[in-house]
Amino acid sequence: MKIAVCIKRAADMETRFKIAADGRSIDEAGVKFDIADFDGFAVEAALQLKEKDGTGEVTVISLGKDAVQETLRKALSMGADKAVHLKTDAVPADALAIARVLAAELEGGGYDLMLFGRMAIDAANQSVGPMAAELLGVPCVSAASQLGVAGGRGTARRELEGAAEVLEFPLPAVVTIDEGIARPRLPSLKGIMAAKKKPLEVKPVQVGESRVTVIKMELPPERTGGRIIGEGPDAVPELVRLLQTEAKVL
């Protein structure tokens, strides 16, 4: 079974962000980058499918500048077999433009499964995976919390509000992965050494015109401290009054 996993290099969400001087992006100085959270779950899902199957090959693919090679090597150190760096200096905000580049790489790769994270943890568009499926003309299951393959068909479970559904679909297919699947494994030290010897192919790509542009990025307003208005039951009327008139939440 051949599995491709499209991964994005994204800022570690525990970082304290600053907006860059252009007002439209984050200041990358001192920011730690890693495989975007849901994409890490997708890599883990692919590795588990391969291990269960006993055979197969996991290819990780990432679009971006040279720095994404570090992210690809992290996936190789987790156990992926090979990596493709789709090299470009600027990744646009337009999900369709990104999906076109990834679909062009996936097409003809002979992949049975093409996995994506449910969404990139930074941009949170949830679009690239389904758009790539559309461009490739293959079935798409989004936000799978479980994934299985048997007899050339896939099964996936999706967690819905108050229920879950189980789907079946023919391969090849695109599946976007939710966090329920399994925690991404830690790269072992031997895995880190082995990753250096695995193939990482660099392919310069042209990203098409972006019709969506980020014009402004801002941090959420600073949270102000709480206020103690009194103690015990005596304080309740005043608290209710303030919640109604000042906070306007009641």
Binding site: E70, R73, K74, S77, L186, P187, S188, L189, I192, M193, K196
Partner: peptide, 14 residues
């Protein structure tokens, strides 16, 4: 190096 950081990060998370 990237490798040294990767090793450190894995053990850190462990």
């Amino acid at each position: 190096s990237e490798e040294e950081r990767a090793v450190r990060d894995s053990v850190h998370r462990f």
